[in-house]
Simulated assay, not measured.
Amino acid sequence: MAASLTRLLLDSRRALLTMLGLQAVIWSVQVVNWLDDYGLSWDFGLRSERIDDLPEMFTMPFLHFSWDHVAANSMPLFVLGFLAAYRGMRKFLLASLVIAVSGGLLVWLLESPNHVTAGASGMVYGYLGYVVLRGVLDRNVLDAVVGVVVAAVYSTILIGVLPVAQGVSWLGHLGGLIGGLAAAVLLRNRPASKSAPAAPTSNGPHADLLRQLDDLGL
């Protein structure tokens, strides 16, 4: 129990530092972008149907079109990103990759060719879906409680996955949400097979590593 708690605290610290660093990068990019009259957003935002623009699915979450835009995304990105990451950075990074690709592909496939999409809101919706469904799938009381609270607090933003607001990338929101749900399924904790041998309890050279992986649900 003590080892699990220590591991959780260490992972939570890494998650906090990661999200603080991400916020610093996004706001630093915003300053440069603003000074450049948002040229970075136009140059490195995602345009649909252009093969050479596909890599921009990984740059568009760092770019915004106004101070209000970046401010609106920052707090939910920080909170939901932290909750997605506090169980371990490996799963968080994999989930982030799935979310970025899912949101980017949906925008690239279905958005108007003349439209440039940028902003971190797709990642926000992805982390929302990931945290809520992870709480349902994983056999962990803390994750379940976190999922319920997040669903209650952020449920109202789900209107953003519908094409009801002009100038809002609902496709990016929907794609991010789909990616987050998919990541929760792909990265869920799987119960050990009944036929699998019991975990070693010896003090062999790999015992500590196996216990750490077990604490992480891996």
Score class of each variant (00 low, 15 high):
residue 64 H to S: 12
residue 65 F to K: 04
residue 65 F to R: 01
residue 66 S to C: 05
residue 66 S to R: 08
residue 66 S to T: 06
residue 66 S to D: 01
residue 67 W to P: 07
residue 67 W to N: 04
residue 67 W to M: 11
residue 68 D to A: 14
residue 68 D to G: 15
residue 69 H to L: 01
residue 70 V to P: 05
residue 70 V to S: 12
residue 71 A to Y: 14
residue 71 A to P: 09
residue 71 A to W: 14
residue 72 A to P: 01
residue 72 A to M: 09
residue 73 N to E: 09
residue 73 N to I: 03
residue 73 N to S: 10
residue 74 S to H: 13
residue 74 S to G: 13
residue 76 P to Q: 04
residue 76 P to D: 07
residue 76 P to R: 06
residue 76 P to N: 09
residue 76 P to H: 09
residue 77 L to I: 07
residue 77 L to K: 10
residue 78 F to Q: 01
residue 78 F to T: 06
residue 78 F to E: 04
residue 79 V to G: 09
residue 81 G to R: 09
residue 81 G to L: 14
residue 81 G to D: 02
residue 82 F to D: 06
residue 82 F to R: 10
residue 83 L to W: 04
residue 84 A to L: 14
residue 85 A to I: 05
residue 85 A to G: 04
residue 86 Y to Q: 10
residue 86 Y to L: 00
residue 86 Y to E: 08
residue 86 Y to P: 03
residue 87 R to T: 13
residue 87 R to S: 07
residue 88 G to V: 12
residue 88 G to A: 10
residue 88 G to D: 07
residue 89 M to V: 13
residue 89 M to I: 12
residue 90 R to N: 14
residue 90 R to E: 13
residue 92 F to I: 10
residue 93 L to H: 03
residue 94 L to C: 11
residue 95 A to N: 07
residue 95 A to T: 04
residue 95 A to D: 13
residue 95 A to R: 02
residue 96 S to W: 10
residue 97 L to D: 08
residue 97 L to V: 13
residue 98 V to D: 03
residue 98 V to Y: 02
residue 98 V to M: 03
residue 98 V to L: 14
residue 99 I to S: 02
residue 99 I to F: 05
residue 99 I to T: 00
residue 99 I to H: 06
residue 100 A to C: 05
residue 101 V to C: 05
residue 101 V to M: 08
residue 101 V to P: 12
residue 101 V to E: 05
residue 101 V to K: 08
residue 102 S to E: 03
residue 102 S to C: 09
residue 103 G to P: 06
residue 103 G to W: 07
residue 103 G to L: 00
residue 104 G to Y: 03
residue 105 L to E: 00
residue 105 L to W: 03
residue 105 L to Y: 00
residue 106 L to A: 03
residue 107 V to F: 01
residue 108 W to R: 02
residue 109 L to A: 14
residue 109 L to E: 06
residue 109 L to I: 08
residue 109 L to D: 10
residue 110 L to Q: 06
residue 110 L to C: 11
residue 111 E to N: 12
residue 112 S to R: 14
residue 112 S to F: 05
residue 112 S to V: 09
residue 112 S to W: 06
residue 112 S to C: 06
residue 113 P to S: 15
residue 113 P to G: 15
residue 114 N to D: 15
residue 114 N to E: 15
residue 114 N to P: 12
residue 114 N to I: 10
residue 114 N to G: 11
residue 114 N to F: 14
residue 115 H to L: 11
residue 115 H to E: 14
residue 115 H to C: 11
residue 115 H to V: 15
residue 115 H to I: 13
residue 116 V to Q: 08
residue 116 V to H: 02
residue 116 V to W: 01
residue 117 T to M: 00
residue 117 T to H: 05
residue 117 T to W: 00
residue 118 A to H: 02
residue 118 A to Q: 11
residue 118 A to V: 12
residue 119 G to K: 11
residue 120 A to M: 14
residue 120 A to P: 09
residue 120 A to F: 13
residue 121 S to H: 05
residue 121 S to W: 12
residue 121 S to M: 10
residue 122 G to P: 01
residue 122 G to K: 01
residue 123 M to C: 05
residue 123 M to F: 09
residue 123 M to Y: 10
residue 123 M to S: 08
residue 124 V to S: 05
residue 124 V to N: 14
residue 124 V to H: 08
residue 125 Y to P: 03
residue 125 Y to N: 01
residue 125 Y to M: 08
residue 125 Y to K: 07
residue 126 G to Q: 00
residue 126 G to S: 09
residue 126 G to E: 04
residue 126 G to K: 05
residue 126 G to D: 01
residue 126 G to N: 01
residue 126 G to C: 00
residue 127 Y to D: 07
residue 127 Y to C: 13
residue 128 L to R: 02
residue 129 G to M: 10
residue 129 G to Q: 07
